[in-house]
Design a protein around this nucleic acid. Structure first.
Lengths: 211, 211
DNA sequence: AGATACAGACCGGCGGTCTGTATTATTTTA
DNA sequence: TAAAATAATACAGACCGCCGGTCTGTATCT
């Protein structure tokens, strides 16, 4: 095969395969030969579409990030719900998507690269917090469903805690531990007039730990 | 040179050199040849004392961790101060030591390895929180200087926030941002009856960002 | 006739191994 | 008990397989 009529399919095949391998065995342990074997392409084909192994990683992360952003933006821009309701929706959706491996969230943690650890923090603190959580917080303050003196800081803390502490993907946890953390988190947000985690979501988190 | 009388010195030389190189250029970009050149040892010498490159990293991290633990334990076991005072002392000391690069804290972030990201979280959530912060919290609850219903969760949240959100090493920040975060953090801890960050420490954090 | 989409031989450098050697520690022997 | 024999240690450095990346060649499209 030379001069494929639909090179976009080849790119997507590489991305799909690489994304799966990076998730399964990490970026560092995934060799180019693995990708070659899995895609049944040649080294030349891959390096024709991507400048380096790292470029593949960036493309994978970007693709998930785009999907992520679209989902979050849709929730943020809904008409109707209060700020508190939107926030609940956002955290719920985000958590559930990450359970299906469909979200940026924890990817960089599974991938061993300092740039991407920084990129993860940047994604949380430089994009998710100011672009999605903060507007909703402000909206909630305006409509009275949320009380907060310092929404900028609160938006960051909410994300840090939910992504790095609450999220059960990072460490094996017993159901009791998950529930205790969720209760503490809800108690924390309660002082701002809202609770983020309903019983359904807590149950989903518990179940995710078991599987 | 063969059969050195003081092999311990050789081990320390490797550890010192590697630690410096890992800090400067990261683990991944530091090649064994770099260590060989800097130590003026041979590959055989290094692999005689360490099983792998990763084993050197583990030894480096362990050595810093041991130093770290010793410092924290000393504060925890002091007689005299209240729980709240000890907690302030612990966060202050820990923060100041990390400014000097003398503490485990952020090392794994600078080193690109998934195991060591996990190891960092483990060090925070599996050791620092239960072994040092939690006992002090309990002590503070007993002596009345701290009010907390769920000290286990609180100990983890305090460390997560201070290490991953408050700590200015992770992202460049303006003095205003640092001060705003510190104020938010103090307001957060205030509901448990204590404030962790005094003006001195906040100033030190601001200054650290500038240099 | 280019330009594009591959194929695959090839390369330098990496982490890691293996064998060799000098020095020290330990045991044996007279 | 002291010297000789043996074993164990602390290196040195050639060597190896594999990895990411390059380069040249070729078939198929526009």
């Amino acid at each position: 095969m030379a001069r494929n009529k639909h090179p976009e399919q080849t790119v997507q095949r590489i991305l799909d395969t690489a994304s799966q391998l990076f998730f399964q065995q990490g970026y560092g342990k995934t060799t180019l030969q693995d990708i070659i074997d899995a895609t049944r392409l040649s080294k030349g084909a891959i390096y024709h579409h991507f400048a380096s192994k790292e470029a593949i990683l960036i493309a994978v992360v970007d693709r998930i990030g785009d999907f992520n952003s679209a989902v979050l933006a849709e929730i943020r821009d809904k008409k109707g719900p209060t700020g508190a309701e939107k926030l609940r929706d956002l955290f719920r959706t985000s958590m559930k998507l990450s359970f299906q491996g469909k979200i940026l969230h924890m990817l960089p943690f599974l991938i061993e690269n300092p740039k991407f650890m920084a990129l993860q923090m940047q994604s949380i603190l430089g994009e998710a917090a100011p672009d999605y959580v903060l507007p909703i917080l402000r909206e909630g303050i305006a409509d009275g469903s949320i009380r907060a003196d310092h929404p900028e800081q609160l938006s960051e803390v909410l994300l840090i805690l939910s992504d790095l502490w609450l999220h059960p993907i990072l460490r094996p946890s017993t159901p009791d531990q998950v529930r205790a953390r969720c209760a503490f988190f809800n108690q924390f947000t309660q002082q701002y007039g809202f609770a983020l985690l309903d019983d359904d979501l807590v149950d989903a988190m518990v179940e995710f730990c078991h599987s």
